[in-house]
């Protein structure tokens, strides 16, 4: 069973995407499922690390926080671009030591940080687990370290480790 259907979530996702694109009918369902099964076999051949989710119930909270932060950051960056304060604008790099080691967790954190207009993930060093972050409007470095660690990393640690 596991060999035949690896990554059940991926199979369902691909089949659904196929149905959205091609229209809902029995024939398309069969075709989409066949393609999804093939794709899952292909992914299984690559043997990626399997994500382990410990706490499903924290995911909605994370999504909520992220959507809110993106909205706030959108407004902040838009205000800086619109007003003529670009000379006073102080952007800079922040180094943040991370506790999070799970690859999927790190990928999610990278997606969150980069999707937010005010912050960009530049580099991550494997050995020390140090994240190099570029912040658009850097007022206080420690604030940003605290923000990333408390707001996102703690939740991700709960979810993935």
């Amino acid at each position: 069973m596991r060999r035949l259907f690896p990554y059940p979530l991926l199979i369902v996702a691909i089949a659904l995407a196929w149905l959205f694109l091609a229209g809902f009918s029995l024939g398309q369902l069969l075709l989409g499922t066949a393609v999804a099964l093939l794709a899952a076999q292909g992914l299984a051949a690559l043997r990626p690390a399997k994500p382990r989710l410990r706490r499903w119930d924290f995911i909605p909270r994370l999504v909520g926080i992220v959507l809110l932060d993106i909205a706030r950051s959108n407004i902040a960056v838009a205000r800086v671009i619109l007003s003529g304060e670009r000379e006073k604008l102080r952007s800079g790099f922040v180094s943040i030591p991370l506790q999070l080691r799970d690859p999927v967790g790190l990928a999610v954190l990278a997606t969150i940080v980069t999707s937010t207009p005010g912050t960009a993930w530049i580099d991550y060093s494997d050995r020390g687990g140090i994240l190099l972050l570029h912040v658009f409007d850097l007022v206080d470095e420690d604030d940003w370290v605290e923000l990333i660690k408390n707001r996102y990393e703690n939740l991700l640690l709960e979810i993935f480790e």
Binding site: I70, N74, V77, I81, L82, F93, T116, P117, A120
Partner: peptide, 25 residues
């Protein structure tokens, strides 16, 4: 707004933030 920022901001690392306005909301 994102592309205006892309043109008007000073350094590359600042500009990398600008297109995210368009790609998020």
């Amino acid at each position: 707004l994102g592309t205006i920022g892309l043109v008007r901001l000073q350094s590359f690392y600042q500009r990398i933030h600008a297109p995210t306005l368009g790609t998020s909301y």
